[in-house]
Structures are given as C-alpha cells and as structure tokens.
Simulated scan of single mutants.
Amino acid sequence: MTDGEKNDVKDEIGKENPDLPKGTEVEVDDKGNATITYPDGSKDTIPGSDLVRQSKDADKITPKVPDTKVPVADPSHLTDSEKDQVKTNVTDANKDNFPDGSQVTVGDDGTATVTYPDGSKDTIPGSDLVRQSKDADKITPKVPDTKVPVADPSHLTD
C-alpha cells in the first residue's frame, strides 16, 4: 500500500471512531492491517481484509458530464430515441475516459449508468443529462423564399 492509501485507512478509522481517546495512535501496515494503540498502552487490531479491497474501475474513473443536456418532452419518461441521445452524449463526452468494453444504459428519467469491464458502476443523475424541451427545441422556423426589400440594408447583421 502507498502512504496515501495508508493515510486514507487511518482517516476512515478516525471518522468511524470519533470518540477514541485523545492521544490514540493508529498505524497501518503494508497489508492494510490497522493497529490502534490507546494512551494507556493497550491495543486493538483491525485486519486489513475488513479495511481495504482491490480498487475497481469506478474508483479510478469519474465520468464526465456532457456539456449539453438533451431536451426531452417528459423528463420522467424518456422515449427510446431520447435515451439513445443521452447514451450517445455520455459516450462521446467520455470517449477517452472509459475503458474499452464499458457499457452505458439510460433509465426512464435520463439517469445514465456506466458499467465498466470489471463490473463496477458509476451513475450520472438524469438531472445532469436532460432538460424539459422548449418550443424552440421543437420548432424550426422556415425561411421565406423571398427576401423583403428594405431601403438601407447596411445596418442589418447576419
């Protein structure tokens, strides 16, 4: 174990045991075993198997949230095509982030679940991926075939 990992174990023990007497020492060995030495010299040991586990893909990867939310008719009940768009957006945003073999599934509320090759998972809430559609999302105004003549078009901008 690295010193950082050992410190993480010490921190977790401290969080779970806030009432340890002042002056209590916690030492973690290379196998993750923790020895707690109390101020009076007595000791407790917590085996590493209770404190550490092999890291998984989900521990090492933080999925990136796409820059653009998918406009949907009903954020609680996405259509299959809306789910497909969410999946595409998540996959595209993470093309250099997810290991080969990662799978993205999208729930009815737009929540995306990423399942990595080792079976671990990450979840991105639907509220980060979809939004209620607006009229402008549904309507594309048609441009008339004929332009309207104006006296001074120099002040118009494209």
Rank of each mutant, 00 (worst) to 15 (best):
L78V: 05
P125A: 08
V143I: 15
K134Y: 10
T91M: 14
D74I: 12
Q85Y: 03
Q132V: 02
P117F: 06
P153F: 05
A151I: 14
N89Q: 12
K138W: 07
G119C: 10
K147C: 07
D109V: 00
P125W: 01
P117W: 04
S120N: 09
P144F: 11
V150D: 06
K87H: 10
D100C: 10
D96E: 09
P117E: 05
D74R: 08
V130T: 00
D96W: 04
T113L: 07
V148D: 03
G126D: 03
L129M: 05
V104A: 03
A73K: 15
D137G: 10
D108G: 01
P144D: 08
H77R: 12
P153D: 04
D92A: 14
T111A: 02
S81H: 09
Q132M: 03
P125L: 02
S154N: 14
T91I: 07
V104R: 01
D128A: 08
E82D: 06
Q85D: 13
G110S: 04
L129W: 00
D118A: 15
H155Y: 14
S154T: 15
S81T: 14
T115S: 08
D108E: 12
Q132N: 04
T91H: 05
T113C: 06
N97W: 02
R131H: 04
G110E: 02
V114F: 02
P153Y: 05
T140V: 14
V148N: 06
G107S: 14
K134M: 11
I139R: 07
Q103V: 15
K138Y: 08
D152P: 00
D74E: 13
F98T: 00
P125D: 06
L129C: 04
T115H: 09
K83G: 02
P125S: 06
I139L: 13
T88M: 12
D109I: 00
D109E: 08
D80E: 14
L129A: 02
V104T: 03
T115Q: 07
T113A: 02
N97P: 02
D108A: 12
S127V: 10
A73P: 09
S133A: 14
P141F: 07
D152L: 02
